[in-house]
């Protein structure tokens, strides 16, 4: 019997189902946040929808016990794969005190959790790239064996920090994997108004690193590219730039109306290629996902999202005066 695609990539049936489940969890949390936003319960949401395959495919190719990550605001899938829970995400959505990302200080999508090696992020884009390079530099200096994984959108590839960070990583041959999630829009501005080159990965050449463009709707293809990049990094062969081509299925954020700048037909067409649907079809065709297993996963994910939402909604806010804490290190006692 010939091996199917995920087995050829070295992914077990169990792992591939775990990938699917994590993708679905990211999607369902995201959808729930939109509902909460539209019903006036949370002020803001910014989505991962359409990018789950790239995020989870990449994360599963990493060592999620050792590797570090500097995600950007759409990387719900990455942070879930790195150990953040649905409850953590919902606490952030409701800006509650227990939110591990920021204790309710930052908008949702501004991830960070030290125990899972998820660097804290901000809103000005691409600042996280030099941070990931710095983590890789530190790891190399300390002779630790891990890679630093940083993600960003294609609009971010026009920032100075993209150039400065990647050039630094290339010069010092650091174990950094940079994955650009090219969802074709920087808010309203399409790719051809953002980037002059034919694609993003071609830019890798000027930084002396390996560059490749992959189908970001296919978690197995992304997995393979990141797996290879990780091997190069660990073997001392330096950084990689991976461009995962996806599509942003929602508006930029809950405050954006994408009907003003892109055609409905274009979005409808992209939805036919929705990675959650295409991946579940693949899993069914390869016999891994049965109706029974699918139903079990759906109900489990639904339960997790419901429980997380209820918990976070009931959880307390920080005390007002907590706004004064942690400007600088606070001395004990």
């Amino acid at each position: 019997m010939s091996l199917n695609r995920h087995q050829q990539a070295g992914i077990t049936d169990e792992q591939v189902l775990d990938m699917y489940k994590t993708m679905l969890l990211a999607r369902k949390i995201d959808e729930r946040m939109w509902l909460l936003n539209r019903s006036g319960k949370i002020p803001f949401v910014i989505s991962c929808q359409g990018q789950e395959a790239a995020q989870i495919g990449a994360s599963f190719a990493l060592d999620r016990e050792q590797d570090w990550t500097a995600p950007y605001y759409r990387d719900l899938g990455v942070v879930l794969a790195f150990g953040m829970t649905a409850k953590d995400i919902m606490l952030s959505a409701f800006a509650k005190a227990e939110d591990p990302n920021s204790g309710g200080r930052q908008m949702p999508g501004h991830f960070g959790q030290k125990k899972n090696r998820i660097l804290t992020g901000s809103s000005p884009v691409t600042t996280q790239l030099p941070h990931a390079v710095g983590v890789a530099l530190a790891g190399k200096m300390e002779k630790e064996e891990f890679v630093s994984f940083v993600t960003l959108g294609e609009g971010s590839t026009n920032q100075g920090d993209f150039h400065e960070g990647l050039n630094f990583a290339g010069v010092h041959k650091l174990p950094v994997i940079t994955m650009v999630e090219n969802n074709k829009y920087a808010i309203s501005v399409p790719f051809d108004r953002q980037v002059a080159s034919e694609n993003v990965s071609i830019r890798a050449k000027s930084y002396g690193m390996h560059g490749v463009t992959v189908n970001g709707n296919d978690p197995i293809e992304v997995y393979t590219a990141v797996k290879e990049a990780r091997e190069r990094a660990i073997n001392g062969d330096g950084p990689s730039l991976i461009e995962a081509v996806t599509y942003r299925l929602t508006a930029h954020s809950s405050d954006d109306d994408d009907r003003t700048y892109r055609e409905k037909e274009e979005v409808e067409e992209a939805k036919r290629d929705d990675c959650i649907l295409t991946f579940s079809t693949y899993l069914k065709e390869s016999g891994v996902l049965t109706d029974e297993i699918e139903e079990k996963i759906n109900s489990e994910v639904q339960g997790i999202v419901n429980e997380a939402t209820e918990y976070a909604e009931e959880a307390p806010y920080a005390e007002p005066e907590h706004a004064l804490r942690f400007v600088y290190e606070e001395q004990e006692g």
Partner: peptide
Amino acid sequence: GVGIGAAMYGL
């Protein structure tokens, strides 16, 4: 930025 990353790591 690279310095900040290294500092967050613990250097």
